[in-house]
Nucleic acid binder design. Sequence first.
RNA 1: CGGGGUAUGGCUCAGUUUGGUAGAGCGCUUCGUUCGGGACGAAGAGGCCGCAAGUUCGAAUCUUGUUACCCCGACCA
Length: 591
Amino acid sequence: MKLEKLIGSRFKEKPADCVIDSHALMVRGGYMKNVGNGIFSEYPALKRITAKIERIIRREMDAIDGQEVLFPVVLPADLWDESGRYESVGNELLRFSDRNQSRMVLAMTHEEAAVHLVREYAQSYAKYPFMIYQVQRKFRDEARPRAGMIRVREFTMKDAYSFHTSQEDLERYYDRCYVAYNRIFQKAGIPEVVTVASDSGMMGGNISHEYMLLTPVGEDTIVFCDACGYRANMEAAENKMVNDLPGVAAPLQCVETPECKTIEDVCRYLKSDEKLSCKAVVYQKNANDQFVVAFVRGDYEVNETKLRNIVGEEIHTAEITEDDPLVAGYIGPYDISGEVEFYLDVSLQGIENLVAGANREGYHYTGLNLERDLEGAEYVDISKIQEGSVCPCCGKKAITIKRGIEVGNIFQLGTKYTESMGMQYTDENGELHYPIMGCYGIGVGRMAASICEAHHDEYGPIWPISIAPWEVHICCLRADDEETRAVADRLYGELLDAGVEVIYDDREGVRPGAMFSDADLLGVPVRVVVSPRNLKEHVVEITTRDKSVKEMVAQEEAFAYIQGLRQRLHDEIAAKVEPYDSDDNMTRNGD
RNA sequence: CGGGGUAUGGCUCAGUUUGGUAGAGCGCUUCGUUCGGGACGAAGAGGCCGCAAGUUCGAAUCUUGUUACCCCGACCA
């Protein structure tokens, strides 16, 4: 490929609306173009990258006995009625009607389509287990797309669905998939991706893991234990409180606290520690606007995911008016109106001297002891774990918090979809059962952007060779010089003949600085500079994009050197790919 | 959905306060001189100033409405 003909222009200035590096560099480098809010087209440079990522994914899915299929993007709403998700999923599901006023959806995930595809086929236990997958576009009408390709509305996703006749079988397969996913990220040159335990959200099911690329610009918060290696998404991380605060019991007193509507105000006014206060965060149920109050220790925050799981239905942050039974700013667990559902977080357990709202304008209680003053006080885990908290796994105070981008996830779904959609098989004894499902996703475009985010410098991306748009980038510094062009042309031809992916910059009249800048933006791992200056010494310059290699190589040895370097870069990545457990084959009868 | 911001050529922006018929740099085209980290000179192409209505002799500029995009939050497999 000649750079001159490459579609997609590169430019010098940072686009005004790019906030994170990968977004700015990928727009500047001519990788993609914004079409609308959270909607992008891919130029050839990016398309080549995503195609390579997809190839890696396909190999690994095939290696764990996946069979590639293709579901439609547009699905009839009836199918989503079957699972109940037409109603239960929020506005991210784009609903519309066709010309006959039939209700349709743009598929944002394909569990329904997967069950639909195989429910007639897989009526006998003998067909199990099996896995189907596709690489296809998804549309999710995200409330707020952001950060370039990291969070978009339409995107390419590999989604896989496995079907099993027992939980043990699912777990066995889940483990294989877990390894396959590791291999995918290792092969794509981002072995630093870590797995974390996660909340399974609207997907249903129990066990799930997310694959996180750690970066400060990540949208997810991840909890690490430095002592035992525990890792979890903040949403799912258990907050195992051990309150060792000095508990000096005091009598319950109602005191005046004028104009003190926040914990900060109250504690300043009463000269008490925020750790000895009880904070109220108010929500309402989506269904009927009924209030749900979460009480947490003053210095803690509510983990809404965990709260939602405990409440058992969808909730949203509340707006309190004067007619409501709650007094905004003065809400406390003692003397609270009987019609309000409330929960006490574990962070409050064992504190004998709390400051809390008195449910009365301008008043708070001091000396509140929940165990003593509140009949049948029970505690639930609804708060966010904090830096330095106690690890829920090993109990040591070694929790650290980092940010990450979720590039993949795997779920044990159970029978949620097979039951709701009436998929059954007959076992050896002629009895009917619902198959157990797993599902496994990877966002392809997000992965490309994440790799850029994790591997770039101020001049551009530094693509790992396994997913780079090209393997070798030749810069011919003076294409108007006959001898120089002849050498560069010949090298280009030889590399092409050898099956190497080469981008060749032989533009005349483009100055070296501009050529190097373009090369930096394309981020190709091996760069070859052919110039009159080098040829005078009978050498060409060969460097890697990450600057780890910089060699002047004799002209006639350049081809061999490039081939060697290219192979070495591939080998370095391959060396980090973990092996599969040998003969763990999904096909029962040895096939 | 709430709060804030922006909309002027392919990109980055000025001009809007004080109304007078559109500018700069980069990029693009042509020519010349250059040539190892985004060169220089000359000539040129390209914009009904997001859209609609209004005020006015006259609107990029003032008023109203509307749309799109960006940021923060809410929400989110």
